[in-house]
């Protein structure tokens, strides 16, 4: 075994519900295997750490070719949710509630609780400086556990030697 501990860095750039869980699941698994974890949030990924946005992450059925009617337990095979239905008011909320149900069924916690578990397990969270400026955010807008607002250059220093996963 080498002296340097293995280090995995996740870059979270998306805020859609389905794009939030991969870093949480893999980050938690990494901590469970004694691997150091850093998560860098940028662009739409800022939603994951922004207090006002975190409880309201959604998934839209429009133009999502993998989201089939069968997700709702209907025996409809490969039949998709028609885009024309997806544009109706309430359809995004409906798709989101189905996704929340599916996530809960496998025992995965909601995003806020999951992220807190990672922080408690030693994961280090950072927010992207450019995104903070772009969206007019401050450190006070973030959930507990976000250590700092850092530049892309800082990120390059922090991730030296680490394995980087971009989501």
């Amino acid at each position: 075994m080498s002296d340097e501990n293995r280090h995995v860095v996740f870059i979270c750039s998306k805020g859609n519900l389905d794009m939030v869980y991969p870093a949480l699941v893999m980050g938690w698994a990494a901590l469970g295997n004694g691997i150091d974890v850093t998560i860098f949030f940028t662009f739409w990924g800022m939603d994951i750490i922004t207090k006002k946005r975190q409880p309201h992450l959604e998934i839209a059925p429009v133009a999502n070719t993998s989201m089939k009617m069968s997700l709702m337990g209907l025996p409809t095979g490969n039949l998709g949710i028609p885009n024309i239905l997806g544009i109706l008011p309430g359809m995004t909320a409906f798709a989101t509630s189905i996704m929340h149900k599916k996530i809960a069924e496998v025992g995965a916690p909601p995003v806020g609780e999951y992220l807190q578990m990672l922080v408690d397990g030693g994961a280090r969270l950072y927010a992207c400086k450019m995104s903070v400026d772009m969206f007019g955010l401050t450190k006070e807008d973030f959930v507990d556990g976000v250590e700092d607002i850092v530049t892309a250059s800082d990120f390059m220093d922090m991730s030296e030697g680490a394995q980087i996963i971009f989501i």
Binding site: W28, G32, G34, V106, G107, D120, G121
Partner: peptide
């Protein structure tokens, strides 16, 4: 937090091995 303090670097796996059990399965 306490689990990571008591059994640093992979608590569930470590405690399973110390307890004479198999490796825990499942992602969460």
């Amino acid at each position: 937090k306490d689990m990571f303090k008591l059994f640093p670097k992979g608590p569930a796996k470590k405690v399973a091995r110390i307890s004479g059990l198999g490796k825990p399965e499942g992602c969460v």
